[in-house]
Write a protein that binds this DNA or RNA. Structure first.
Length: 414
DNA sequence: TCTGGGGTCCTAGGACCC
DNA sequence: TCTGGGGTCCTAGGACCC
């Protein structure tokens, strides 16, 4: 069997769709403000008052000028001076994202949100339910249902694997449906550059180019073993399979979050430790709220700092029992910030804090040793009470200010 | 051009244990 | 005094995605 035949016969029989919202943040901004953003054809979403932001989403009209998402807003405005810039309407975006998902779940129980604006759906096994209806027709009905139910325009791609569905959705934009039939995966893949494959970023693409590999067809010419010799076993195998539209990935509904983070780029670089600590406290309070809302406890806290020269550094610390209270998170984070600032004390552009290594928060583990008790049950009860007050009376009802200047802090553990 | 904010996954080295 | 191999956990950094 040649490598080409192997690809053709590896069709899984699965029917996977990727539903991708068209210029999602632009759509949300228009829903949020029909009289303002809604009236501007040339619309950029993202960018901050400080002028330091980047474009999160650019309307199709601005893309004619060469504007792309991820581009610094200042650059985008140079390309398209008439564009109207608005901030990301976060609340509307998460609400619309949920509404889209609710509509999709009416079509199949297996829906995996891949980001705020796209979701994979496994339609395998629904053939009986949708008796006689082609996947294309089902996807078209789905598209109409999302427009009616959530007011959002989506494009849908479909095929026997996630990667084929994803690339097909890109080809279907805007507002289209494209299904790659079983057996047609390789011919479909041959249209693409390797850099179009999800997972092949600029760095990997440059490396591949150094072997003369630019388009998918370039990879098709080689046996798996050759790719593995050039790229290493795991990456060679990965590329061999992706180029053929194959991935082993299942669509997994309800994946648990593996990390949560909050970060902020300052309008102006901050160069004093005290001011950074105050920013850190705000971030920890926001993060703590997210962690508790999901009933989790984090065993590892990571602090990230981006210096004015854009050098990014991080420090992490893992505690025996997970933490969930603002105070305990801040305690750990503060130590880490001190460590980072001690190593290099220059003006900071960004500060962030992340929680990972989650444990379920509903089981109280008794600390075996005193020093392991970073956070007491009493701390947790107080924090939950404060959450309840905020729930009723608003976020500002309980101020965290006292945490900043409390008298003593634990000495560094390391 | 001057670089956001939210994530996932991978790698490599060192500590530590058996 | 010099010497193992394997497994797990932790930390730091980086590529990548939307």
């Amino acid at each position: 069997m040649t490598h080409r035949d192997e690809g053709r016969t590896a069709v899984s029989g699965r029917r996977i769709l990727l539903v991708d919202c068209d210029q999602f943040f632009v759509q949300c901004a228009r829903i949020a403000d029909p009289e303002g953003a809604g009236r501007h054809e040339l619309l950029l979403v993202g960018g901050t008052a400080s002028g330091r932001g980047v474009v999160t989403s650019a309307s199709y009209a601005t893309r004619e000028y060469g504007v792309r998402s991820g581009m610094p807003t200042a650059h985008a405005l140079r390309l398209c001076p008439a564009a109207h810039v608005v901030p990301v309407p976060r609340n509307i975006c998460s609400r619309k994202s949920s509404e889209v998902r609710e509509v999709l779940e009416r079509f199949s129980p297996v829906v995996e949100p891949a980001s705020i604006d796209e979701a994979y759906i496994d339609m395998s096994g629904t053939e009986t339910l949708y008796r006689g209806e082609s996947l294309h027709d089902t996807a078209t009905r789905m598209q109409a249902a999302v427009r009616t139910g959530a007011g959002i325009t989506v494009s849908i791609g479909g095929g026997s694997s996630r990667i084929v569905a994803k690339l097909a959705a890109g080809r279907a934009k805007p507002a289209g449906v494209m299904i790659v039939p079983p057996g047609a995966e390789i011919d479909f893949m041959l249209r693409f550059d390797l850099g179009d494959i999800p997972g092949v970023g600029p760095v990997f693409a440059r490396e591949l180019e150094s072997f003369g590999l630019i388009r998918v067809e370039d990879v098709m010419r080689y046996e798996r073993i050759a790719l593995e010799q050039w790229l290493g076993r795991s990456r060679g195998d990965w590329l061999y399979r992706r180029a053929r539209g194959m991935d082993g990935g299942q669509v997994q509904p309800e994946r648990e979050a593996k990390s949560m983070s909050r970060e902020e780029t300052f309008a102006k670089d901050i160069d004093t430790d005290g001011a950074l600590e105050r920013e850190l406290l705000e971030l920890c309070v926001r993060l703590g709220g997210d962690v508790r809302r999901d009933g989790l406890r984090a065993r590892t806290i990571t602090v990230k700092i981006r210096d004015g020269d854009f050098r990014t550094r991080s420090a992490a610390s893992t505690v025996k029992d997970g933490v969930e209270t603002d105070r305990a998170i801040f305690d750990v984070a503060c130590r880490l910030l001190g460590k980072l600032r001690g190593a290099r004390r220059v003006p900071a552009r960004l500060l962030g804090v992340a929680a990972t290594n989650f444990t379920q928060g509903d089981t109280t583990q008794l600390a075996m040793f005193d020093e392991a008790a970073v956070e007491s049950e009493r701390d947790r009860r107080l924090t939950r009470a404060a959450d309840a007050v905020r729930e009723r009376f608003g976020w500002r009802a309980v101020r965290p200010g006292r945490l900043v200047d409390r008298p003593s802090r634990r000495p560094p553990a390391d």
